[in-house]
Design a protein around this nucleic acid. Structure first.
Lengths: 240, 240
DNA sequence: TTATTGCAAAAAATCGATTTGATAGTCAAT
DNA sequence: ATTGACTATCAAATCGATTTTTTGCAATAA
């Protein structure tokens, strides 16, 4: 084991190549809502900003394109993926279907190890109060929240499904962060997380799965309301 | 409309950039089974073979990586995605779930346009006898087969879901072509295609969806049998 | 005015060279 | 013989320059 990668808390290798680092960095920024949907992404501008050459940058953009965070046309470059009510509806619907399937499996296959990690992730997330504190508290909560959802499904032992779930989760998060940014933290959401975790570890499959579905749907509806309201005012620029 | 791209029969733009062309070319070759699962992919060798430089080639490999056709580690390059019984099982299971959902929707939303295209694709596929003729007849059937499955679900109006379905279909096809290459064309499969199409256009939702599921499962089982048998002999090289 | 063509500027895509990192093989020390 | 450090070699990753394509603008014709 003479890999020179830095290792994070979970023991997973962190990307060390420029391409990998930039991919991660840009992903965070897009999900955070730093770029307007539909906005052109200039390769040269970014390469100057990050002080890297075109090749690793193009690779990063290609990857983010595959994740649905960017759109692209050949010879015409990349732009931030547009937002739309129909896209959001599909993301939400697929999340419900996929995550239900994954949770069902995770409950069947998970053991004490899994239970422990779920409860740990739940605790960590609840420990962070994102209503006080600045941007970094917010980021910390986002990370903990993502980790909770990941750990909840991790035991399902279906790597492809988890990959799809992660991708959809990213897309979904972007909508939530864009349109619910101004809203206060959601109390009932916190409660739902607790109950989902409880149902899951006590193997009450149906209740866990149903509540997870409801949880996704409820958040989705809140976003949809805002999205519809916003749509009237600022119609999102959509090149295509 | 001063796009200089060539246009195919369906009016869609074909990729003209080197990166795009190479991506498509390599995808075909991998799905066709030209490379052994687990085989190292040398960037330099490929760049010499295609007479292109590293940049567009790396981009192509990155894309195919996102599609699950290649695996990669940073600083250690790319290799053809390994095959395994568990991976194949997951692909099959997800295909059943996703394609059922898509077909259900397509039947609800599709109109005469859709019906026509489905029946047309069915006809074209049946018109090709892949038991006679050489490799190009085989390729033609593969294309027609893929087109049939695409048209069948196209009306569902869920672009993300269709993207996932296409990805899984690619992975699934690879298994079929690797492990069922020696088998004679499957008679009952042809019959199933007919019946699925009939059920679909006559809006017999449940029957159509169930049969599609069975169709995928049956083909999957045939592959699984071969895969298990082969596993004993040639244990697949798996770097990781 | 509206449409069309030609041209210059800008941006995307690609190239070939260079740098950085991984790996296998050798040799010395235990 | 086995381990560990060192080095030569090979491959991946990155760079900066060059080529190709798109795009915005202006001039001209309908």
């Amino acid at each position: 084991m003479n890999r020179r990668s830095s290792i994070d808390a979970d023991g997973k290798d962190l990307p060390r190549s420029i391409g990998g680092r930039i991919t991660d960095q840009l992903r965070v920024e897009i999900l955070r809502g730093d770029f307007a949907p539909g906005a052109r992404v200039s390769i040269k501008v970014l390469s100057e900003r990050f002080n890297v050459s075109l090749s690793p940058l193009r690779e990063a953009l290609t990857r983010l394109g595959s994740e649905g965070l960017l759109s692209s046309d050949e010879q015409r470059g990349f732009w931030i993926a547009p937002v739309s009510a129909s896209d959001h509806a599909e993301v939400t619907r697929l999340r419900i279907s996929f995550e239900r399937m994954a949770l069902q499996e995770a409950i069947l296959k998970g053991g004490i190890e899994w239970e422990t990690r779920v409860m740990a992730a739940l605790y960590r997330m609840n420990r962070i109060d994102r209503s006080i504190g600045g941007a970094e508290a917010k980021e910390a909560w986002e990370t903990a929240h993502r980790t909770f959802h990941v750990e909840l499904l991790a035991a399902c032992d279906m790597p492809l499904l988890l990959q799809f779930v992660a991708l959809l989760h990213g897309l979904s998060d972007r909508y939530r962060r864009i349109f619910l940014a101004s809203n206060p933290p959601d109390k009932s959401s916190a409660l739902e997380h607790e109950r989902i975790a409880d149902f899951a570890v006590s193997r009450r499959n149906e209740e866990a799965v149903d509540l997870l579905g409801k949880h996704i749907e409820r958040t989705g509806n809140a976003v949809r309301k805002k999205l519809m309201a916003t749509k009237q005012t600022i119609d999102v620029s959509n090149d295509k």
